[in-house]
Write a protein that binds this DNA or RNA. Structure first.
Lengths: 182, 182
DNA sequence: GTAAGACTTCAAGTACGCTTGAAGTCAAAA
DNA sequence: TTTTGACTTCAAGCGTACTTGAAGTCTTAC
């Protein structure tokens, strides 16, 4: 962060292994605004070295980091989660495989969790509403799979977790379920 | 919204089919703060009738709506998406099955899209980083499925879409890929 | 009837994730 | 050398999604 880059190595067209990128190049290549990159740097999500003239230069491995931030953001993960997810992946050098792997396992857990949430919501909507009962408790038994099938995921029983998560709404959905019985 | 509820029907303990709920009861049952419920009402995401004394009373079917908002929020969907997702599901009466079904199909599309994004990120992390190549382009051929398998989804080739989406970062990942080849 | 607690509105404040603008500096090309 | 565009910091502003607080009203229970 307070290291210094060679002043002359600014922005050539061809690329060599340890060429440094300007903030503009990073922005163009990742699709992330320069102002956002500065913001991420303030947060410590990414880092840069500085030229003698105090301009940022990014090592190439920072591209991957920024891309991951962008994807995660698109998926609605807060930056604090992204930060945590990076764990001990180093900022000051190209991360090793082991370092990426350790981090990736953390991310995975978070992502699987979130994806499961999405799947639950999908099931609630296509399954429980689709079948007409509108009560998730009842639907846990019906176990619909019309929509899940189209994605290659097999039919599944709802988790006990779901019962807990949305129990508040369910305590009352019997009213709706009764109307559905007409 | 400007309808009026019977003044005497405030907050009994047992529940009848068309009993109305106070904002406090809604809050307790859905886990959503009363201030948030007022906010959602301002946005038109939910609606209430008023007592003679101007207090909110919620019909029971609003519980489901609020629960869906809460789940969607937990999954990082913006309220504007939630709003759109509700489409023509009516606020002023218990929605019919067809109305919920129409809306659910809209939601589904959004959710599937988002879930696919998560799966892509998972693949990138466990597949491409896990296997050591660190280049998504190369990994499209390797097609890892260790993590996908645990969720019952079959192994899949990466979409051409992925290539497009993250092409920016990939243009440079050959550098990383080269180091990975050691 | 009265007291307690739940409710009302409205305005302001907060946290996140940035963008915009001003004023000035740096780097590369002509 | 000069010009142009890309860069710098810092401060303020913005959109989303609320929370908090003040001042007052309603409902319920006693």
């Amino acid at each position: 962060m307070t290291q210094q880059a060679e002043p002359g190595s600014a922005a050539p067209a061809h690329h060599e292994p340890d060429e440094l990128l300007t903030i503009g190049e990073m922005s163009r290549r990742t699709g992330v605004a320069a102002s956002a990159l500065r913001f991420y740097e303030d947060l410590g999500l990414i880092a840069s070295v500085r030229t003698a003239g105090n301009q940022r230069r990014y090592p190439r491995h920072m591209l991957r980091r920024v891309s991951l931030i962008a994807v995660a953001k698109r998926l609605g993960l807060p930056l604090s989660d992204v930060q945590e997810g990076f764990g001990d992946v180093p900022l000051d050098r190209t991360p090793s495989h082991e370092e990426w792997q350790r981090a990736s396992r953390q991310w995975k857990r978070r992502l699987v969790e979130r994806r499961r949430g999405l799947e639950r919501l999908e099931r609630e909507l296509t399954g429980c509403i689709g079948c007409g009962c509108l009560s998730m408790k009842a639907c846990a038994l019906l176990n619909p799979d019309d929509a899940l099938g189209e994605d290659g995921a097999g039919p599944r029983r709802l988790d006990p977790e779901l019962e807990r998560d949305d129990a508040d709404a369910d305590r009352d959905s019997d009213e709706i379920g009764a109307r559905a019985g007409d």
